[in-house]
Structures are given as C-alpha cells and as structure tokens.
C-alpha cells in the first residue's frame, strides 16, 4: 500500500499521515524518514514540533536529505516519508549548491521513493501542493515548481490512495486502485 498525502501549508497533513499510518501499519516498528535539513532556526523549530507530535508513537526516525535510491532501511511495519517538497529542493539544488537537470532530479526522487516502497508493506508519503498561486518567480523557483508538480503526478500514479488534507479534513482524491508502474 502506497498512500500519498498532499495539501497546503499548515493544513494538518503530518498529523493526518501519522495517525493514518499508526492505524493502518501492522504491529511493530514504524520508520519516519525526515528530509528536512535542520540548518536554520525555523527548520529546527519545525522539526522539533514534528518530534513532539510523534512522541509516544512507535516511530524510529532516520534522516535522509537526498539519495533515497541508496537508502536501505531495516525491517518495519510501515514508513512515513516527510516531506517531498524538501526532498525535491534538496535533490534539485544538490549538495554542492549546483542545480541538477530537472529530469535527472525527477528520476532520482521518484526512483528513490519507489525503492522505499519496495521495502515496506505500507508507505505513506507527505508532499505539498505549491502550485496554486501567482507564478512571478525566478527561473530557478519556476523549475522547482514544475519539478514538484511532476513528482506529485508520478507519486499519485504509483499510489493506491491519494488524500488531500484541507485544514485537517481528509478529502479523498484516489482510492484503492491497482498499483501502476
């Protein structure tokens, strides 16, 4: 089962995704794969907030900012990947501050997530909808928007379920279809 959870900022995606996996994952350890780099004060605060939310739940956390294709994880009852918008930025802008070709980034991101999906019975992916505003952005940001849009479309294809969370309310977009790919 692959379940993609999308929505806007501050809409309760993480809380929903955690809750869903806690209920639908089997008994045993759940893995939380964190993609956000804790390098700014705001990022550190956000990470701490998510850690508080997960406290008391049965998650073990792994940090992986990019290169999911090379990540082999231990046996688990379910995986929560959070979040694809950070992963996409990390993959696109690269470790050395050089921008990758977006097609290469697209393959690395979706291939990496597919690799994760092979290592669990239940993968929940948290992504973000960032493309419903004006596009007066720089070429680099425009490239990011396009890439994340394509990543989200591929994720939806490989997912059995897609849910958009609107202020904490799950709105089903795709449900229980055959896995494509």
């Amino acid at each position: 089962m692959v379940h993609t959870v999308t929505g806007g900022s501050g809409s309760g995606k993480s809380a929903y995704a955690e809750e869903w996996l806690t209920q639908h994952g089997k008994d045993g350890h759940l893995l939380y794969i964190a993609t956000m780099k804790p390098f700014t004060e705001e990022a550190a605060e956000k990470i701490a907030r998510h850690q508080r939310m997960r406290a008391g739940k049965r998650f073990a956390a792994i940090e992986c900012y990019s290169g999911l294709k090379r990540l082999d994880v231990p046996e688990n009852a379910g995986i929560l990947l959070e979040c694809v918008s950070n992963l996409t930025a990390n993959e696109l802008y690269g470790e050395e501050g050089r921008m990758k070709d977006w097609r290469e980034a697209l393959e690395d991101i979706t291939g990496g997530i597919w690799h994760l999906a092979q290592q669990t019975e239940c993968l929940v992916i948290v992504t973000n909808e960032v493309n419903s505003d004006i596009n007066g952005y720089s070429e680099e940001t425009e490239c990011y928007r396009k890439l994340l849009g394509m990543v989200n479309q591929r994720l939806a294809k490989m997912s059995d379920r897609v849910t958009e969370v609107v202020y904490g309310i799950p709105v089903s977009v795709k449900k229980d279809e055959e896995i494509v790919e």
């Binding site: 806007g8 900022s9 501050g10 809409s11 960032v130 493309n131 419903s132 505003d133 004006i134 952005y137």
Partner: peptide, 8 residues
C-alpha cells in the same frame, strides 16, 4: 481564503 497553496 486558503493561502497555503504556494511557494513558501
């Protein structure tokens, strides 16, 4: 209005 659907 929903205002969280764009670039940060």
């Amino acid at each position: 209005s929903e205002i969280g659907y764009g670039i940060v």
